[in-house]
C-alpha cells in the first residue's frame, strides 16, 4: 500500500494504491467511469487517457508512475467532447457506443497535435482505437466534417 498524489482533470487528488495498481482502475475508482477496459493486450484503445497531455493506454500504466503528473479523462474534456460528439452523432458513426470515450480522447489528442491532418494521417493516428460495430467510415466522415467546421469558424484555413 502506498499513497499516490496526482492531478486528475485539473483537481489535486490523493489516494491509496497497491504497487501493481493500474491507472485505469485508479481513475475509475475516483469516479471517471468513461475509462473502460476492452482487452487484455494493449490493443483496443478504449482505456485512453492523457498523462501530461499525451494519450496513453491506462490499462498498461502503473498508477505509481503518475505521482505528481497531470492525468486527464473524458470527464475533464466535456466541452471539446460535446462539440466533436455532435459530429459523430450526426454521421450516425456509432452503434453500441462502447468504443466512444477512448475514440474521442484520441481524436482530441490528434486535433491538438495536428489541426489539419490528411486522411492518411487520421487513419494512422486512430489505428489503435478498435470499434467492433462500425467500419470506421462514419468516424472518418465525422472527423472531416468537424475539422471543416472548425476551419470555417476561424474564417477559412
Amino acid at each position: 500500500m502506498m499513497e499516490l498524489k496526482f492531478s486528475l482533470n485539473g483537481k489535486k487528488v490523493s489516494t491509496i494504491i497497491e504497487a501493481d495498481s493500474l491507472l485505469i482502475d485508479v481513475v475509475r475508482d475516483l469516479g471517471c467511469l468513461s475509462v473502460k477496459r476492452g482487452c487484455e493486450t494493449s490493443n483496443c484503445g478504449l482505456c485512453t487517457v492523457f498523462v501530461n497531455d499525451k494519450p496513453v493506454l491506462s490499462c498498461s500504466v502503473l498508477a505509481a508512475r503518475v505521482e505528481g503528473q497531470n492525468v486527464t479523462t473524458l470527464e475533464g474534456l466535456q466541452e471539446e467532447a460535446a462539440e466533436f460528439g455532435a459530429f459523430l452523432a450526426d454521421q450516425g458513426a456509432e452503434q453500441c457506443g462502447f468504443c466512444n470515450p477512448g475514440f474521442m480522447m484520441n481524436a482530441i489528442a490528434m486535433f491538438r497535435e495536428n489541426p489539419h491532418p490528411e486522411e492518411e494521417e487520421i487513419l494512422s493516428y486512430l489505428a489503435g482505437n478498435l470499434c467492433r460495430c462500425s467500419g470506421y467510415e462514419g468516424q472518418l466522415r465525422s472527423i472531416q466534417t468537424y475539422l471543416a467546421f472548425k476551419d470555417s469558424q476561424k474564417g477559412g484555413v
Binding site: 494493449s42 490493443n43 485512453t48 496513453v56 493506454l57 498498461s60 500504466v61 484520441n106 493516428y125 489503435g128
Partner: peptide, 12 residues
C-alpha cells in the same frame, strides 16, 4: 515503428 499498435501504445 508507425504501424506498431497505435499512437497511445507508442507513447509508452
Amino acid at each position: 515503428v508507425k504501424d506498431i499498435v497505435g499512437v497511445q501504445f507508442r507513447n509508452t
